[in-house]
Design a binder for these strands. Structure first.
Lengths: 248, 248
DNA sequence: GAGTTCGTCTCACATAACGAGACTTAGAGG
DNA sequence: CCTCTAAGTCTCGTTATGTGAGACGAACTC
């Protein structure tokens, strides 16, 4: 697994033996042995640049499956796209994973944005960003509490976000039904909105969020975004519900 | 790796201990030991259904990276989308991997289609499908020859495709600059087109393909699709070229 | 044809994975 | 409330199997 991560970190150029030797404590023969195994399983493949290795296509299959619990990703993809095209902002699908929110899918719109996550698979500490608030607001109280307790220091250090502010936003989200981001020191010029994806039994499947320049967030635009998002979410959830029925 | 594949095969419901016990030769304690390691590395995560395991979100990152050699996937995604929306057919990005073509990205259009690959990560034997032809036509002759030799029996058995027909189509692709599918026994009601993605130095980066109902393939539609695809490809290749320059 | 790097091989050693089975939780169901 | 079953952990003795040092062959560079 360490070798896979090293390979990923080396990007499109591929990883060389020296990259592996530097990044791990393993000896050269051992690395070759492991590499061979990973290649045979399709987890690595030779780079067009000789003597370098790239991540194998078998990981594509696993990656696609990993992000597609309950087909949420496949279902949300065209919807995020539609939102991004019609409204111009960037839209995201997030899932809850321990102390973090994981980005399962992005569609960037015409207007540029900054965001806490760079791309699919990116993680944000729960508490930072509007999607976090939507997720936290939909969790069981005791789970939410331990997460906030666990993240408190890091939120303060890295984002300059206070737990009180997060809890206030969670409360606000409960009342108004949608989440805004908590003001922190990072990304001051951007803002966003998020909505939870709730099961018919009110279990939280994830959150859909959007990010935009603060200057674009007029009351009318906010209304437009919220309306469009909840429309997409309603359709998505009933679609997902229909699919789940066929499964067991 | 076997455990990961078992987990993937179990889908959204998750894999239970018995799934692992049945699918492998390992003992119960060993499975738990391995599962623990995979969980700690983020390659597996607990399912909402107790006592079941799902693929972890760390695989998202690896999967996204694996399919994104030279950023081809990120760059092609919006373009495939545009094509699917404006033309209504389904568009694919393929890469060459050994004896197979791997699907890196799909965008389905409004019209339904059947295809050899189910989804991202799906493999087709080189020789079957129009993307295969485009890839084969762009490979070195000696590599193409061993691939065709290796695939001959399987192509005949599973798809009822003869090597001669494949080679004729490759020749045709060289002349006309685009690939059609080879007629076989499977999917008789569908057809498609494909174009290779060629580097500025004529190295083959992959192939873009499209699939449609035979009834939609009128001469004018064919021209429209080919024109739109090559336009997207030209832009894509020069974009990719620009990115690569920044890398070393 | 000399030099360098890449990948494999051998081998002795000790780590550390293994399975059998006992044990502890934790639910489920009556 | 109490049994019953299944989930997950632990101990332990055995053995295999992965390990590093270093030598070796192969391939590419200059």
């Amino acid at each position: 697994m360490a070798l896979l991560r090293v390979t990923a970190a080396c990007g499109a150029r591929g990883a060389s033996i020296d990259d592996y030797l530097d990044a791990t404590e393993l000896s050269r023969p051992t690395i070759y042995r492991l590499l061979k195994g990973l290649r045979e399983e399709g987890f690595l493949r030779p780079s067009p640049v000789r003597h370098r290795y790239l991540l194998g296509y078998e990981l594509l299959v696993l990656g696609a499956e990993a992000g597609n619990g309950a087909s949420l990703r496949d279902l949300s993809r065209p919807r995020l796209l539609k939102l991004a095209q019609s409204l111009g902002d960037s839209f995201y699908l997030f899932a809850h994973d321990g102390r973090h929110a994981v980005c399962l899918e992005v569609q960037n719109g015409a207007y540029p944005v900054g965001s806490f996550v760079a791309s699919i698979g990116g993680r944000v500490l729960l508490g930072a960003g509007q999607a976090s608030i939507a997720l936290l607001a939909s969790l069981e109280p005791d789970e939410r509490d331990w997460i906030l307790a666990a993240n408190r220091d890091e939120l303060a250090d890295r984002y300059d976000i206070a737990i009180d502010a997060v809890e206030a936003e969670i409360e606000r989200c409960r009342e108004h039904g949608y989440a805004r981001g908590v003001e922190g020191s990072s990304l001051p010029e951007f803002t966003g909105l998020a909505l939870p994806l709730l099961d018919h039994s009110r279990r939280c499947l994830g959150a859909m969020s959007c990010s935009m320049l603060k200057s674009r967030m007029t009351p009318t635009h906010r209304e437009a975004v919220l309306t469009a998002m909840s429309e997409q979410i309603d359709e998505l959830v009933s679609q997902a519900h229909g699919l789940l029925r066929t499964e067991p």
